[in-house]
Write a protein that binds this DNA or RNA. Structure first.
Lengths: 138, 138
DNA sequence: GGGTCGATTGTAATCATATAACGTTTCTTG
DNA sequence: CAAGAAACGTTATATGATTACAATCGACCC
């Protein structure tokens, strides 16, 4: 008997959603849907749609982000991710590590641009691809 | 006998590159690689690789951009696109129109973030998906 | 001309990512 | 319990991208 639907706790996730979320949480980098599928075969997963459906829900809840430039997914770094604004990702193309960041000023600028043009945003993607500090020195 | 390789003019494009570039230029929105392939069958295109190879080159030259969140491609809006910095895209999910923009302040903030972390950028993606002014009023 | 190197091309096969369309089960709520 | 909504399972298919290999073209040099 949860009072309101938003901020739904992890305990309210269905079995499949929990499995997918756990796979992403324990990974040390982004995973593709098919990688998740393979990891969950032992748990009874058989088809891509089982993964995609769980991913859709988890994204809706803000627990998981999609990395557009990688076609893959990552658990949200923020403990109880209700963070609504823009989220950026810095992706190392060598080691695969992803760092999540946000920036109020960028958010403001994008917001201004959109307001001026009456553009109604649904999703904002900011992704930096390159080499992290460690990898760029090797 | 062109003196240097950079800023290569359109006239230096190969036949395939020109065909792909023209297809994108005359389109009124982004095209997927396979859509381009279909449009160029009459010109002798038979396989996806012919398109992807041309697209790679055109992106290298800055004549074409890839929209990561759509898995598709668009001709650069800037006449002689040597624009090096960040480029953002606002994509209408209803009518498919894409507007290209840039913002020095955002570029600065991203640059600062990356410098502070010694992150060496290779490509920056900024994409806004939502509804354009026209479509959001209908 | 003949030789060489790099960029480009053509083609087939394959891999990777995502969705459509179906029907069934489970959860919730009155 | 009845009924609607949400989640699920399965098969087939659509869509996007790459690997591998051989052939060709162009610029350059001797």
């Amino acid at each position: 008997m949860t009072s309101h639907v938003h901020e739904r706790p992890l305990s309210d996730l269905t079995k499949n959603q929990k499995l997918v979320f756990d796979a992403l949480s324990s990974a040390d980098g982004p995973l593709s849907a098919y990688t998740i599928l393979d990891q969950l075969r032992d748990e009874g997963f058989r088809a891509p749609l089982q993964v995609y459906r769980a991913l859709d829900k988890l994204q809706e809840l803000g627990l998981v982000h999609r990395l557009e430039s990688l076609n893959s997914f990552i658990a949200c770094a923020h403990p109880h991710c209700a963070s609504h604004g823009m989220i950026g990702f810095a992706i190392c193309e060598n080691c695969g590590q992803v760092e999540e960041f946000s920036d109020a000023e960028i958010e403001t600028r994008l917001g201004t641009w959109m307001r001026e043009r009456a553009f109604k945003p649904r999703k904002t993607t900011v992704e930096l691809r390159g080499l992290c500090a460690t990898c760029s020195t090797h």
